[in-house]
Design a binder for these strands. Structure first.
Lengths: 329, 329
DNA sequence: TTGAAAGCGCTACCAT
DNA sequence: ATGGTAGCGCTTTCAA
C-alpha cells in the first residue's frame, strides 16, 4: 500500500510537501499541488491513519461495551450515541461481552491499550473489581444503566427507584391490595433492587404493608412466564404484579391467561421500558417509557464534555420516564 | 502515559529487553524479568497498540457498517458476528449510516484509512457508485442482505426470491385468490423486488394470474398500517396479503381489524423475518424465520476465510428459512 | 542474555 | 514555497 514516501518519490517532491497537499495546508504552489495530486491518484494513495494517530497521539476512538446488542436498551442506545459521536468525528469501537462480567474488564483494558479516548459502559452490575478497573482506566468511563456516582464514576441512569414508587402508586390506585414483584439478578441494582425498593416504599407510604414477594429471574419472556406460573400458584390472592421489564411482563401475562384470569382485570400488570413488544402484544402492557436513545445520546455528550477538559459539572444524570397506560393496568 | 522507553530507563535495561518480557519471549533471565516487571507495575505501563499496529502492519480491526443498529436484522447480526470476531481476537469498528447511502461510501473510505482488515456491510441497496467503492476497497468487503455476487462481491443473503415463492404457495393453498404485496423502496432488491418476484412466480406457476398490487412504503408498523388502509379501500376483493416484513404485516393487520375484518380468516396475512413482535402481537403473524444471527456469523466467518488468504471458494451464501405458522395464515 | 539501531508512516519544526 | 530531520512507541534483526 502506497505511502507518503512513494507519492513523494513519484511526484519528485519531499514527503513534507505531499503531507501539505494531503492536509490542504497553506503555502503550496498550484503546480506542485497538481503534480502531487496526480501521483496520489496514480498510486491510489490513502492516508494511513494509524501512523497519523501515533504521531498525533489522537485516535478519535470511543470504546463502547454492551452486554449484548440485541436488546432495545442497548440497540437504541448505540444508535443514539453513535449519532453524537459521528457528528463529532469520532469512531465507535464496539464490544459485546455476552453477559460475561470478566469480559467487561478485559475490554476496558484492551480499549485502553488501543488508546481509545473514552469508554461508554452499559453495565448490569457493579462490583469492587470493576469499579477498581474503571477508576484505573486512563480513558474516562461513562456508565449507563447503573449508578457509579458513589465511586465518582459519571453515570447515566434511569429513575429506577421512582419508577418502582410510581408503579406501586399506580397499582394501589387501581385497587390492588396484594402486590408482587418479579425482578432479575440481585446483582443488578438498577433493574432489580431499586425498582423493588421503590415499590416497597410506595406501599409503606400508603400503609399497605409489604410486597407479597420479590421473585428473581432473567430478562426474557420465557423466564417471566415460568416465574409467574409458579408465583400465581403460591399466591392465590395476588391482584397486582410489577415486573422489572416489559418482556417479563409479557411472559407473566401469558401465565395469567393460562389460568383463565384476565390481566388488567383480575390481576393488574405493569412493566418497565416501553419495549415495542408490549405495545403490540395482547393485552398490551401498561408500562413506563424509558428513553433509551436519549440515554445513549446523553452518555455520549457527557463523555465529550469530559474529553474537552471541562471539569465534570455533574456526577450523574437521572433520566425521567413517562407513564404509558395500556390494557394491563 | 508511560512507554517502553520509560520502563527501560527505570529498570535499567534496553527497550528491546522490555519488549521481550512484555511479549513473553524466550531468552530473558528471570532476574531481569522481575526487574522489568517491577518497573512496569510501578509505572502502570500499558502497551500502546497503535504503535504496535503501525510497526506490525496489523490492526485486528474489522469495520461493520449498518443502516441502523436498532433493528432485529442488524442487532442480532452484530451480536452474531462480534462473537466470531471476538474469538478470533478481532475488534469491531461499528458505524451506523442512519440510512444515508452517502455515508456508506464515506465509512468504507474511512475504514480503509484506519486500515481495517475487512468490512462487513449491511446494505439496503446497491448502486454503481457503491459497487465501485467496494471493488476499490483494499479491505475485502462482505455484503449482508443484498446480493453483490454479480459484481464479484462475496455476499450473505437470505433466500428472498424463494420466500416470495413460498409465500405465494402458502397463500394460494390457504384458499386466497386475490393476493397483494406491500414492499419497501424499489432500490431494495432483496426486500422489495425479489420477494415480489417470487410471489409473482408462484402465482404464474399455478396459473393464478398476477398479484393485485405491488405497493411500497417503509420498514415500519405505521407505514404498513397506512398503506394497507388505502389498499383495502381500493381492493375490496383482497383475500391474501404478503408483506415484505413482519412489522409491515403488523400494521396491515391493524388496518384489517379496523375494517371489522379478521386477519387470518377474511384476509390471510404473511410477513417475513420472524420478528419477535409478530409472535406476541394479536393475532400473531404467520411468517418465515430468517436467521439473522447466523447471517452475522456467516459473514464473519466468510470474511475470516478471505483474510486467511484462501482463494474464495464461494461467491455467495444463501441462507435458508423456516415456515412459521401462526394465526394470520 | 542483552543492547543498538533501523524503520513502520506520519507531522512539525527549522532551514533554505 | 519546499526540503531535511527528528520523533511518536513499538518490533526485529544483527552484534556483542
Amino acid at each position: 500500500m502506497a505511502s507518503l514516501h512513494d507519492v513523494a518519490k513519484l511526484a519528485g517532491v519531499s514527503k513534507s510537501t505531499v503531507s501539505r497537499v494531503v492536509n490542504n495546508e497553506y503555502g503550496v504552489k498550484q503546480a506542485t499541488k497538481d503534480k502531487v495530486q496526480k501521483a496520489i491518484d496514480e498510486l491510489g494513495y490513502q492516508t494511513n491513519l494509524v501512523a497519523k494517530e501515533l504521531k498525533s497521539q489522537k485516535t478519535n476512538l470511543i470504546g463502547v461495551i454492551v452486554p449484548r446488542v440485541a436488546s432495545s436498551a442497548t440497540s437504541q442506545g448505540v444508535d443514539g450515541l453513535s449519532r453524537v459521536f459521528d457528528n463529532a468525528g469520532k469512531q465507535v469501537l464496539l464490544a459485546s461481552t455476552q453477559q460475561s462480567f470478566q469480559k467487561e474488564i478485559e475490554f476496558i483494558r484492551l480499549f485502553n491499550q488501543k488508546r481509545v479516548e473514552g469508554i461508554i459502559l452499559y453495565a448490569t452490575h457493579l462490583d469492587e473489581e470493576l469499579v477498581e478497573v474503571i477508576l484505573q482506566s486512563a480513558a474516562p468511563v461513562v456508565l449507563v444503566g447503573q449508578d457509579g456516582s458513589l465511586f465518582n464514576i459519571p453515570s447515566i441512569v434511569h429513575d429506577d427507584f421512582r419508577v418502582g414508587f410510581e408503579a406501586g402508586n399506580r397499582l394501589l390506585s387501581n385497587g390492588c391490595r396484594n402486590i408482587g414483584f418479579i425482578g432479575v439478578a440481585s446483582s443488578d441494582i438498577a433493574v432489580d433492587k431499586l425498582r423493588y425498593q421503590g415499590l416497597e416504599q410506595a406501599l409503606q407510604f400508603k400503609r399497605k404493608g409489604e410486597p407479597l414477594f420479590h421473585s428473581r429471574g432473567e430478562f426474557t419472556i420465557e423466564s417471566g412466564y415460568l416465574q409467574a406460573k409458579q408465583l400465581l400458584a403460591e399466591h392465590a390472592n395476588l391482584d397486582g404484579l410489577f415486573c422489572a421489564t416489559d418482556r417479563i411482563a409479557i411472559g407473566a401475562v401469558k401465565a395469567i391467561q393460562e389460568l383463565g384470569l384476565t390481566a388488567g382485570l383480575d390481576i393488574k400488570v405493569l412493566g418497565v421500558g416501553n419495549d415495542e413488544l408490549g405495545s403490540v402484544s395482547s393485552p398490551s402492557i401498561s408500562t413506563f417509557n424509558y428513553p433509551f436513545d436519549k440515554a445513549g445520546e446523553s452518555a455520549a455528550k457527557l463523555l465529550m464534555d469530559l474529553l474537552s477538559g471541562e471539569p465534570a459539572s455533574m456526577s450523574k444524570i437521572v433520566l425521567t420516564f413517562q407513564t404509558i397506560d395500556r390494557e394491563t393496568c
